[in-house]
Amino acid sequence: MLLDANVIEKKRSPRLMKNSFMKMLFLFSTLIGLVVLVVLLGTTLLDGWKYLTVDFFTNFSSSRPSRAGIKGAILGTLWLMAFTTPIAIFLSVGTALYLEEYAPKNKFTKFVETNIANLAGVPSVVFGLLGLTIFVRQFGLGNSVIAASLTLSLMIMPVIVVASQEALRTVPLAVREASIGMGASKWQTVSRIILPAAIPGIITGIILAISRAIGETAPLVVIGIPVALLTTPSSPLDSFQALPMQIYNWVKMPQAEFQNLTAAAIIVLLALLLMMNFVAIIIRNKYSKRF
């Protein structure tokens, strides 16, 4: 006998104990994220919910906590999104369509794809430096809505490109063949069959990317978005405030009341993001299994 049955028997119980212990440890790791989320949301709600008054939404920011509100910040963020979204969609979906449907399989295409993967890893603060140098100064756009939108569009482009490419790839070859086999041209096949079939995946990617852009603060700081402004923009060339900038500004204030305002502004921001995430998840689940 090479194996001693007694030894195996003896070792079994510690092995099983180790197994159960490790399982608990893995479960604990999983729960850490959960606990943090609960604590984060809990403390924020506790600190902030009393400050979610009508005045809070209708007042501009102020150095006096009792008068400070997020009107400028919210409207500014909406302006920012109104320009970032179409620019980002135009850039990203166009790029994804080219790479998936038209690009020849050569070194240049490979280079473009690697380049996009690398752009996805560039810190947002570096995109801020790009925006500051090129859009704010070189193009003379100043700290305007359009300068910030261009910067954020470039920043979230890689995310949407990759999500769109994945969505386009899920459209089966058989469906493409069916269209081409009927005498449809390349663009007819792309625009009438492939794009509509991939659109739920693309929209999910867009929503998630835009929700990332909404909360992004560092590039806005770098391109010099003001924290105290008593007007709302009336054109994309105007300066503006943004919700995350407002939070960043308030959290640095020494007065305790500003901490509550910070929390209140965070509640508004998170509510906005959760709503967008929720929509994205619904779209994804609804269309996840179609082929």
Binding site: L40, T43, T44, D47, L208, S211, R212, I214, G215, E216, T217, A218, P244, I247, Y248, V251, Q259, T262, A263, I266, L269, L270, L273, N277
Partner: peptide, 13 residues
Amino acid sequence: GIPTVVYGAFAIT
């Protein structure tokens, strides 16, 4: 998906 500025506020407060 939580913005980093919110994490920052969470860290300091």
